[in-house]
């Protein structure tokens, strides 16, 4: 699972530059949470586009961890990129005061989607392409908000497990403060990814690597010494969240249907 961080960095910098320029954009934009994944994408994009062509949006909610905001500001200072801070509290609170809920997942999803909507609004204003920050672990386990943080135009991290993102972060020189803290979606106080999912990234990544990359069966993975219950749980999460990794399903009626047999590359006509 150990990556050659230098080779990965070179590949992803070229990927970002080429895919952004190809679509006629000079700029990229992303939401910077103060966490690991968005910091890594910011470092890569600053290298790919030049810091002046990267716009970082800091979008805290009132309950967001103050340290995350400080760490995000620190990334902006280090990279010397343009940035905006927009407190999403008024719009979130306005919505929930009219439509109250006790479901904290619904609450968290709403914040993630609100941030998405701001990013795409600024994408239009600034003519900047929205960069995603979901890593392979999150995509496989479905640990993300559909059309929230999972929504973007380009995702440089989608084929790197969380532990590999850590390796890349170290090679890129992302600060110790960002690398050392517990990964968290920070959608409510005290939330951590590992606490919420009931597993550790270290273990989940190894299991996913064996299941997905090495194409082992769950039984074979368990034979490698991983708890069978954990392997089963991870398999169930991967299957249950398959829908999040796809476009909406279209009912086929005609002889040629979008996504089914209207098969053009995304780079068509750019």
């Amino acid at each position: 699972m150990k990556i050659n961080a230098e080779l990965v960095e070179k590949t992803l910098v070229l990927f970002l530059r080429e895919e952004i320029h190809k679509f006629g954009f000079q700029k990229g934009i992303l939401g910077l949470s103060g966490g690991l994944d968005s910091a890594v994408v910011a470092y890569l994009a600053a290298k790919a586009l030049g810091p002046e062509n990267l716009l970082l949006l800091l979008l805290p909610y009132q309950s967001s961890d103050r340290n995350n905001l400080e760490d995000a500001r620190d990334v902006v200072l280090r990279l010397k990129t343009p940035s905006y801070e927009i407190d999403v509290t008024p719009q979130i609170d306005a919505y929930f005061s009219a439509n109250p809920t006790d479901d904290r997942l619904a609450f968290g999803n709403k914040i993630a989607r609100e941030r998405m909507s701001i990013l795409f609004d600024f994408s239009q204003r600034e003519k900047a392409m929205v960069l995603g920050t979901s890593n392979k672990t999150e995509l496989l386990l479905g640990y993300g908000t559909w059309y929230g943080d999972m929504a973007s135009s380009l995702n440089p991290l989608g084929d790197l497990y969380k532990t590999q993102v850590f390796q890349l972060a170290e090679a890129l020189g992302v600060s110790e403060a960002v690398r050392a803290k517990a990964p968290s979606a920070d959608l409510w106080p005290g939330q951590t990814d590992e606490g919420e999912m009931g597993l550790t990234y270290a273990e989940a990544d190894k299991i996913l690597y064996l299941l997905v990359d090495r194409r082992m069966t769950p039984e074979e993975v368990a034979e490698e010494g991983y708890p069978s219950s954990l392997v089963q749980k991870i398999c169930a999460m991967v299957k249950r969240n398959q829908f999040k990794r796809q476009l909406p399903v279209i009912a086929k009626l005609s002889h040629r249907t979008v996504e089914k047999d209207f098969l053009y590359p995304r780079d068509w006509g750019v």
Binding site: T11, L14, F15, E18, E19, P265, R266, D267
Partner: peptide, 8 residues
């Protein structure tokens, strides 16, 4: 060389 739809 180059990238197409994420394939490098």
């Amino acid at each position: 060389t180059g990238f197409e739809d994420g394939y490098g």
